[in-house]
Design a protein around this nucleic acid. Structure first.
Lengths: 208, 208
DNA sequence: GTCTATACGGTGATAGAC
DNA sequence: GTCTATCACCGTATAGAC
């Protein structure tokens, strides 16, 4: 056994390298050679640990999809928070996640559109539970004084507002900030407050 | 010359086939063979009309990116409409565009993330004009009683709310409607009214 | 477990006949 | 312009030595 933990075991090195490459390039764009280089090993060893490119990809994708659906349902069901607090909490957590993993939205969207069945395949293993989700919608519906359908659209709109600024980074950065990435990052940092405000104001404006 | 217009010329056939394949599979996932089959010609002819896969792709992408940015700026500058009317008009036109081209959002997002420079490359040729866009923001800022920055976020949020339901179709369809595509399509049809209402209510809720 | 060498199929691109 | 045949390369995957 190696002395200290600076030396990672090979499997971890592969997983980390594969994550970087797959998330950036996608399944179709990624090359096993590039993953091997990134992990500082050779191609053959990739196939020794994971039998095929597909299998290695699936291992990565499962983990990433899992982190794409954060564990926020318990908070949304909490009886000790107002719906305003819940919205703020959700938006802040979700955008923070993407600030830490900026490529996650584009990656998940790309792969899920490449192979739409992949999402059904992993639905159970990721933090998604349709039953719980409907429970959340019912609770929020009561708290907000909106119909179930309105809550559904509201949720999708909130999630959209969090995800798109990351998934569409090249467009936003270029079109809105003429390529100035400092301004784009500033925009992202302001985003948490704005989106939460936006949603809350919309509920207010609707119910008066 | 052929009798009636049922027979299209080869270039058009290629272009239509390439559009279908590239939009669905992306540059990396698409195969020249598949495009040839789709166009009912052989691979060699593809290279005769367009020298390379890359060139053929660029031709398609330019057109698609162009339609991704609809010509809505004149309307947004119109002095004869309230900002509410402008928002409704924008959202309806934009969502209608995606109802007609459901794969457009996922396609543009995928390719723009694959190669972020591609957007700068075509910025002039697509219907985007940063100067005009800033003019729009200024006008809306006055009409809505919001700061320029708030209008910026508002625009991004509105666009997000229109695009994401299409770009994230596999996720939404599976997670929210358990794979029931009829319910998903129903959701999309309701979306125009909801998004416009949502934005307008938010402005109202903010300024009271 | 880790490496080098290689097999094998697929893919973009071209040559050349018609 | 359109076709068939073919090339050259690249990418996944495996064999086999250590």
């Amino acid at each position: 056994m190696k002395s200290n933990k600076i030396e990672k075991d090979t499997e971890s090195k592969i997983l980390e390298a594969a994550k970087r490459v797959f998330v950036q390039k996608g399944l179709d764009g990624a090359r096993m050679q590039e993953i091997a280089d990134e992990a500082r090993i050779n191609k053959a060893l990739l196939h020794y640990y994971f039998r095929s490119k597909e299998k290695l990809f699936m291992t990565i994708f499962k983990v990433e999809l899992n982190s794409f659906f954060p564990r926020l349902i318990p908070v949304l069901l909490s009886p000790d928070m107002t719906h305003e607090q819940k919205i703020r909490h959700f938006v802040e957590e979700y955008i923070d996640l993407f600030l830490k993993n900026p490529f996650l939205p584009a990656f998940v969207l790309r792969e899920v559109n490449r192979n739409p069945q992949i999402i059904a395949q992993f639905i159970g293993e990721s933090g998604i539970d349709s039953r719980k989700l409907k429970e959340v919608m019912k609770v929020l519906s009561n708290e907000m004084g909106l119909s179930l359908n309105e809550v559904l659209h509201l949720m999708v709109t909130t999630v959209s507002a969090c995800i798109f600024p990351f998934a569409g980074k090249p467009i936003i950065e270029q079109v809105l900030f003429e390529g100035n990435s400092t301004e784009y990052n500033q925009f992202l940092r302001e985003r948490k407050k704005f989106v939460a405000d936006f949603v809350i104001f919309s509920i207010k404006g609707r119910t008066i």
